[in-house]
Amino acid sequence: MPDDKKPSEPEPASKAQNKPEAKPEAPKKPPYVFKIVPADPKNAFDFEDVADK
């Protein structure tokens, strides 16, 4: 198929392995956290998305 590959559903076998790990309770934060991070989720683009069109 040309270009943007968009095929079938995933296999049942791999589904079983797709379980996310439950996130442990966040540890209590110290009173001062100096954190600044980019809030743009799309900065981390997916290479497969842009490969072919």
Partner: peptide
């Protein structure tokens, strides 16, 4: 650009 800051930051 959009940044996310903790309260202290």
């Amino acid at each position: 650009e959009v940044q996310c800051l903790s309260p202290a930051a």
